[in-house]
């Protein structure tokens, strides 16, 4: 199924990265949009339609789970935590590998 396969290469989009990051503490789906805005100091906004669809995709892929069904509280699963750590490492490496070139570009 396409929705499940989109996480096969273990890479996350900026939106799914921020969702998983903010779900390290259980949260209502709708509260996540505010949390992401706060964590990113207002620099990253997730719209309601994108939030709803991405959460469903993450749920289907087993990266998040619902721990309270009446008012749907979501949290990260073990698999989700592994994805988050792996994505953090991938992004950190990209920054690390480009550091010397960027410094040169800035004239440092």
């Amino acid at each position: 199924m396409a929705r499940k396969n989109s996480f096969e290469n273990k890479q996350l989009t900026d939106t799914t990265y921020f969702i998983l990051l903010c779900l390290t503490e259980p949260s209502h789906g709708y509260a996540l949009m505010g949390k992401i805005r706060d964590v990113s100091s207002g620099g990253f906004i997730v719209g309601p339609a994108s939030m709803y669809t991405n959460l469903k995709k993450l749920l289907d892929a087993g990266l998040v789970e619902i721990i309270k069904s009446d008012k749907k509280i979501y949290r990260l699963t073990q698999k989700g935590a592994e994805f988050l750590l792996s994505e953090y490492e991938r992004r950190r490496k990209i920054v690390q590998q480009s550091e010397s070139i960027i410094k040169r570009l800035r004239g440092e």
Binding site: T15, G47, N54
Partner: peptide
Amino acid sequence: ASPIHTDKELL
């Protein structure tokens, strides 16, 4: 109000 679709890749 912010746009409802912010994830262009998903859209």
